[in-house]
Amino acid sequence: MRYDVIVIGGGAAGLMCAATAGQRGRRVLVIEHANRVGKKILMSGGGRCNFTNLEVGARNYLSANPHFCKSALARYTPAHFIGLVERHGIAWHEKELGQLFCDESSKQIVRLLLDECAAAAVQIAVNCSVEQVERGADGFRLRTSALGELSCGSLVVASGGLSIPSLGASGYGYQLARQFGHTVLPTRAGLVPLTLSGAPLDDFAPLAGIALPVETRANGQAFRAGLLFTHRGLSGPAILQISSYWQPKDELRVDWLPNLDALDYLSEQQHTHPNAELRTALAGVLPSRFAQRLCERWLPSRPLKQFRAQELKELAARLHDWPIVASGTEGYRTAEVTLGGVDTHELSSATMESRKVPGLHFVGEVVDVTGWLGGYNFQWAWASGHAAGEVV
């Protein structure tokens, strides 16, 4: 069977690309190897899908080619997708930091994409794997598990990264890129919990379940958000965010009191409650079990009146700049995204088309563009999918 466009991958970027191309009158087929499309959309945002962010810019993305994402993001903005959401009657709200969620369910975003595809006569095949791709004089020939031999003029690779293999993630897109002579930059897990081992794990494991607002810092990047202690290490938005910038052996620092001047607070407590123990004072601004653990393991807990001014200054500085030795990450099993991927220097930033193979496009997570936590990766999916969909 002959199509104008075949899209490999029925995730956010693939469905957006297919709908955009179909609306231009193109004959489009989406091939998805899982038993349904949009699995990652369904589980995102706690089931409510953080579908975009109001403050999207190139600074919110990691890439070896940091300017690459600008063109697509400028031409398909959060306002465009919000307009689409509203046309489909989906109620939404801003949670924090510009993050937009469905009021009801992430199923609504999948339904939106499927309705857009249906209106554009896009065909979708699930439980269908691509077994072979070849390039010929008139485009591409594919051999598939469920549909047999297919051909198309334009081929879009929207197969995602390696994150959350339980949802069907695989490295097929990278394999295909290499087949056609593309460079694939090293991949690793991003937006992922960090693990501790040895003494650091022994130190923090008793705090599992405790959450608090912090600032995390690594390699010149900082994030203020929540941290969650787990039985294996550290999680929460502040950790997930910094995990994309941190690698094993890198320094990781945490400010336990990012919204407070610790020296001013301790000095004031020393003046008003001189007989109070340090742990008691800290429990006024930190979870009490955490304050107790700090004083059991690292900080001298004695009445505040016994601390000299210099000692309080050193205590405060330590609370604002605490070193943590992480051993690794939880890996692709729980990672929200995959860092690295198809080298964008070999793609057109305007169309996502290969500079090596005319008619071949790469969109979404398979490309070396990775967003922060908070709807940025979905916006990249919409924008890159739309950019390719307008030209295939």
Rank of each mutant, 00 (worst) to 15 (best):
R2Y: 14
I6K: 12
G9F: 12
A12K: 11
A12R: 13
M16F: 06
T20S: 13
G22K: 07
G25I: 05
H33V: 11
N35G: 15
R48W: 03
R48E: 03
R48C: 09
L54V: 01
A58Q: 06
S63M: 02
P66D: 05
C69A: 15
C69R: 03
R75V: 00
T77A: 05
F81H: 09
E86A: 07
G89Q: 07
W92N: 09
H93G: 12
L97K: 14
C102I: 08
Q108A: 12
L114M: 13
C128M: 03
C128L: 03
V133C: 13
D138H: 15
G139V: 08
F140E: 07
S145T: 15
S151W: 13
A158T: 08
G160S: 08
G181W: 09
T183W: 07
V184P: 12
V192A: 03
V192W: 02
P200R: 09
A205Y: 07
A211N: 12
T216Q: 02
R217E: 14
A218Q: 08
Q221Y: 08
A222D: 00
A225S: 13
G226W: 01
G226E: 14
L228F: 10
G233D: 11
L234V: 12
G236S: 14
P237N: 06
P237H: 14
A238K: 13
Q247L: 12
K249S: 15
D255M: 08
L260A: 05
A262N: 04
L266P: 03
T272H: 14
T272A: 12
A276I: 00
L278Y: 02
T280W: 04
A281D: 07
S288W: 11
Q292K: 13
R297Q: 10
P300W: 00
R302A: 01
Q306C: 00
L319H: 11
D321S: 14
I324G: 04
I324F: 10
A326E: 06
S327V: 05
G328L: 09
A335D: 00
A335F: 03
E336P: 01
V337Y: 04
D343S: 01
M352L: 06
E353T: 06
H361I: 02
V363P: 08
E365V: 00
D368W: 02
W380C: 08
S384A: 10
